[in-house]
């Protein structure tokens, strides 16, 4: 196991102040604090070469967990082991074996072309300049960004900057990549390039990737396995497809109508998602699908009828919001 989290917990103490003048003064005199349990008892493990999606709403504890795995935050309890090291000791060997990319933070020197930042990285990671040159060429070709290496970073678009951040983060050939929202705020093209890049990079170098993203497309395209956090706790660890299928117990039935129907005609046919003059959308329990379809064909003026599973995005969104999934999967 190249990455192991064993009962990780993190509790923060934060200031607690109500808005308004009186509360401000009160806060000045006596600071009230409260404990926030950002991460509680999270355990999972990654095998070398795996690409795993890390899911959860904002504030579910993803970033804090990533920071504990990279040694930036000391766990309140529990143990992390990454490439054989305890991250928080921040040993040179450990740091040279990992990388962290954060979509909302930049490390390239703002006023200079990225090439200059790469040279600094080379010195800091004690890399040979020729190796670095080779790697820059290879990575920037994969990302289709070779023509931007000499432009000052401040003059680049967000997508171009992110691609160069990726190049910088991978110069030292890390074994484990922690990617925190690497596609945040990028347009669809740039997202696709980066997605393809991560897939190819993983395939070619066998690097382990732990990825968080708000874009389900990133997750579905890149990962077989997902780890889901909800309110700091782990609620699911397994394959993406079984997460979706086990959760989805309903089917969507879309019906094209010859003539409009009355609401009363729909009684007993499942939940109505949409009711228009020429179209109907119904949600029907999977187990009741057969008899309900028979009823529909019998009672309604059907021109066309399709049965689909609800979109993955909706399902995942629902799981992340409610944290409901473990019961179904474990059962």
């Amino acid at each position: 196991m190249i990455v192991e989290a064993d009962g990780l917990c993190k509790t923060f103490r934060v200031a607690d102040k109500a808005p308004g003048f009186a509360a401000t003064v009160r806060h000045l005199v006596r600071r009230r604090t409260k404990d926030v349990h950002a991460v509680r008892d999270v355990s999972f493990a990654l095998e070398a070469g795996e690409v795993v999606g890390f899911l959860g709403e904002n504030g579910a504890g993803k970033t804090t967990t990533l920071k504990m795995l990279t040694g930036l935050v000391k766990p309140s309890a529990g143990r992390a082991t990454v490439v054989g090291h305890t991250p928080f000791a921040r040993r040179r060997d450990f740091l040279s074996a990992i990388t962290l990319v954060m979509g909302n933070k930049q490390q390239l020197v703002w006023d200079l072309p990225a090439g200059d930042s790469f040279r600094i990285h080379a010195a800091v990671y004690r890399l040979d300049d020729r190796d670095v040159q080779r790697r820059v060429t290879e990575l920037s070709e994969m990302l289709d960004i070779t023509d931007k290496l000499t432009t000052p970073v401040r003059k680049l678009s967000l997508g171009e900057r992110m691609k160069l951040e990726l190049v910088a983060s991978l110069l030292h050939q890390p074994k484990v990549l922690f990617l925190d929202e690497p596609t945040l705020g990028l347009d669809v093209n740039a997202q696709q390039t980066i997605r393809a890049f991560i897939r190819d990079y993983n395939a070619q170098h066998g690097a382990t990737v732990l990825l968080t993203s708000h874009y389900m497309a990133d997750i579905t395209a890149l990962t077989e396995r997902v780890v889901v956090l909800h309110q700091g706790g782990l609620v699911y660890d397994g394959s993406l497809s079984s997460l979706v299928s086990s959760f989805v117990t309903t089917r969507q039935v879309v019906i094209k109508l010859r003539t409009p129907v009355d609401g009363a005609d729909l009684a007993g046919l499942g939940a109505v998602d949409f009711h228009g003059p020429a179209e109907l959308k119904l949600r029907v329990e999977r187990d009741a699908l057969q008899p309900t379809l028979a009823q529909i064909l019998e009672r309604l003026p059907v021109v066309d009828l399709t049965v689909t599973a609800p979109p993955v995005e909706d399902t995942i969104g629902h799981i992340l919001k409610t944290g409901q999934s473990s019961k179904r999967v474990d059962a």
Partner: peptide, 17 residues
């Protein structure tokens, strides 16, 4: 800006850096 994280991830003494 929170970019101290990057500094701490570098395999160089952070004070020197």
């Amino acid at each position: 800006k929170g970019t101290m994280d990057f500094v701490l991830l570098k395999p160089v003494d952070s004070q020197l850096f």
